[in-house]
Simulated assay, not measured.
Amino acid sequence: MTLQRMDNVGIVVEDLDAAIAFFTELGMELEGKAEIEGRWADLTVGLDGIRCVIAMMRIPDGHGRLELAQYYAPAAIGAAPPAPNTLGLHRVMFAVDDIDDTIARLRPHGAELLGEVARYEDSYRLCYLRGPVGIIIGLAEQLG
C-alpha cells in the first residue's frame, strides 16, 4: 500500500476562536467545524469521554490542513511551550509572499518572533514565531 498524502497536522488549543483568527490572518481558510464525541472518538484517540470541537483550516492551494481542537473532556493538559530544539513535533513551516507583512498581521493575534528574520543565502528570508498555545510556526519568503 502506498502513502496517499499527509492529511492534516493536529494542534490542541485553549481558545479555538482565537486560533482560527490567527490562522485565518496567516491566510488559511476555515473549512469547517465539528463537535467530536462518542465511542469511535474514544477508541481512535485512546481517551475516555472525549468531547471537543475541531476546526479544519485549509491552506489556500488545498494541499494541506491544520486540525485545531479545543478539548472540553477530558480537560486539556497544559505543558511548557516548546523550544525550537524540543524533542517531538518541531514546527509547521509556511511559505509566504511577504514575511514582514505576515509578521505585522500576526502580532495582534499574539505572535512573538523567536529570533530575527534571517536571510539564507540568496534563496529565502526565514523566521520562527510563537503562535497560539506556544506552538512554533516558521515563515519562509522565497527571494528572487
Rank of each mutant, 00 (worst) to 15 (best):
D101S: 14
A83I: 06
D61W: 11
P84S: 11
A69W: 01
R119M: 07
P132Q: 05
D97G: 12
R51G: 00
P60L: 10
V13R: 03
Y71S: 02
E37V: 00
L126A: 04
P74S: 09
Y71Q: 03
I99S: 10
V13M: 03
A95N: 11
A140E: 13
V117R: 03
I54K: 05
D17I: 04
A95I: 09
I135C: 10
A79K: 11
P108Y: 09
I77Y: 03
G115K: 10
L126C: 08
M1N: 11
L126T: 13
Y72D: 01
D98Q: 06
M6T: 09
P84Y: 11
M56P: 04
T44L: 10
L43W: 02
P108L: 09
G131S: 10
P132F: 07
D48G: 14
M6V: 14
T44N: 04
E31D: 15
A76P: 11
M56L: 15
D61N: 15
H90Y: 11
R51N: 07
Y128M: 08
Y128P: 00
L113C: 04
V92P: 03
T2C: 05
L3K: 06
T44Y: 04
A18V: 00
I136M: 04
I77P: 00
F22W: 09
A21M: 06
E141V: 10
E31M: 06
M1P: 07
T86I: 06
L26N: 03
D15T: 05
A69S: 14
R105Q: 13
G62W: 14
V117K: 02
V133D: 14
E141G: 07
T86K: 08
G49W: 03
P60F: 14
H109A: 07
S123W: 10
L3V: 15
G27P: 10
A55G: 07
V9D: 02
Q4E: 13
M28P: 11
R65Y: 02
V96N: 07
E116Q: 12
A19Q: 03
R5E: 14
A140H: 01
A76H: 07
L3W: 07
M93T: 13
W40K: 00
K33I: 04
V96K: 05
E37L: 03
A75I: 09
A19Y: 02
E112R: 15
G62N: 14
E116T: 08
E31F: 00
Q70C: 05
I11S: 01
